[in-house]
């Protein structure tokens, strides 16, 4: 289920809410190459004992179980909620923009009585989507991760270092035959750095130069 097209739609409802990369506009190149910010996605970090996660069924996640296999993610029946493995006892629940507070309340009531921690990190992180062919090469330039499709397939999420920035890279669940989309999950304060780094790397593969909305210079 492609979650990518359901982004950013609610931004029009909240014109006062600026995302970390609101001064950067999406970039498009040849052959479907696309780079844009996925704004205001709901992000919750859930910590729970590893042993509980295996058997736990959480209704609020709409069929997306907590993945216990490292570096994997799961997606709900509707495709609107994804659960990403961040550590053996740590997950990130990614949902559509604006839904995170209701989801947090539902998760809280459903998990009550257990030993857990649930934090809303929606504005602490932002996401950069990279689509189009050669998006693996763009990322290969920036990190030591093995980006080959033999070791990095749909649904996988891995934390690594991109340039000087710590970030997670997640390959979205896409329908068979659809083009691959990689989503970088980056702390908001480092988002502009990573945007500039990725756009610079993408220029090697035919992406046009970034022209910031209000004339900001590229950081690097």
């Amino acid at each position: 289920m492609a979650t990518s097209d359901k982004l950013s739609e609610t931004l029009a409802d909240r014109p006062d809410r600026l995302s970390a990369l609101s001064h950067r506009s999406p970039l498009t190149g040849d052959d479907g190459l696309l780079m844009r910010e996925a704004t205001h996605l709901g992000k919750l970090v859930l910590r729970l004992a590893e042993t509980e996660a295996e058997t736990l069924k959480i209704k609020a996640l709409e069929g997306a179980g907590l993945p216990t296999q490292p570096c994997r993610s799961s997606v709900s029946h509707t495709g609107t909620v994804s659960v990403l493995w961040l550590g053996p006892d740590e997950w990130m629940v990614v949902s559509q923009a604006g839904t995170e507070e209701a989801l947090q309340t539902r998760l809280h009531s459903e998990l009550s009585g257990r030993h857990f921690q649930l934090s809303n990190v929606t504005d602490y992180y932002t996401c950069i989507d990279i689509a189009g062919h050669q998006n693996r090469e763009i990322l290969m330039n920036l990190s030591t991760l093995d980006m080959h499709n033999r070791t990095f397939s749909a649904g996988q999420i891995k934390g690594s270092i991109f340039g000087h920035a710590n970030a997670y890279v997640w390959q979205l669940h896409t329908e068979p035959g659809a083009s691959e989309i990689f989503r970088l999950i980056i702390r908001s304060s480092m988002a502009d750095y990573l945007w500039c780094l990725v756009s610079r790397s993408a220029r090697l593969f035919g992406m046009p130069e970034d022209t910031p909305i209000s004339g900001e210079k590229l950081v690097i």
């Binding site: 490292p70 570096c71 053996p88 030591t144 991760l145 093995d146 891995k158 690594s160």
Partner: peptide
């Protein structure tokens, strides 16, 4: 032990 083989710079 969880993520598999990674470069030393991540550690």
């Amino acid at each position: 032990p969880w993520c598999g083989e990674r470069d030393m710079s991540e550690f």
